[in-house]
């Protein structure tokens, strides 16, 4: 009985407007990202700069995408690494 009530309330708590808002939030992450490929390029350039401090990478095959699966948006970066750099120079702050 209690379980039934709990389920009932749980179902109720996910109202259709919450579903609408969540779907909107997700679709807009993509829409907004799609508006500016420049932004993605800037991010790529920054990534290359940072990652190159530690690894020798293949810059040309670097891929950065926004991936939506289920209800999570993830930033996915695929960076082919040739080798780890032996001496990491830490930039003085």
């Amino acid at each position: 009985m209690l379980e039934f009530l709990a389920r009932l309330f749980q179902r109720h708590s996910l109202s259709s407007k919450d579903v609408a808002k969540e779907r909107l939030r997700l679709v807009l992450v993509h829409d907004r990202a799609n508006i500016s490929p420049e932004l993605l390029q800037l991010l790529k350039d920054d990534l290359i700069k940072t990652v190159s401090k530690y690894f020798e990478i293949e810059e040309k095959s670097l891929e950065v995408t926004l991936d939506t699966s289920d209800d999570v948006v993830a930033l996915v970066a695929s960076i082919p690494v040739h080798r780890v750099k032996r001496s990491v120079k830490v930039a003085s702050v």
Binding site: S15, S16, K17, D18, A20, K21, L24, R25, L28
Partner: peptide, 16 residues
């Protein structure tokens, strides 16, 4: 419908 949770509220829309 807003009160029943079946329509987005003004706050929801402004938030987004």
């Amino acid at each position: 419908m807003v009160r029943q949770g079946d329509m987005m509220t003004i706050e929801d829309i402004i938030d987004i």
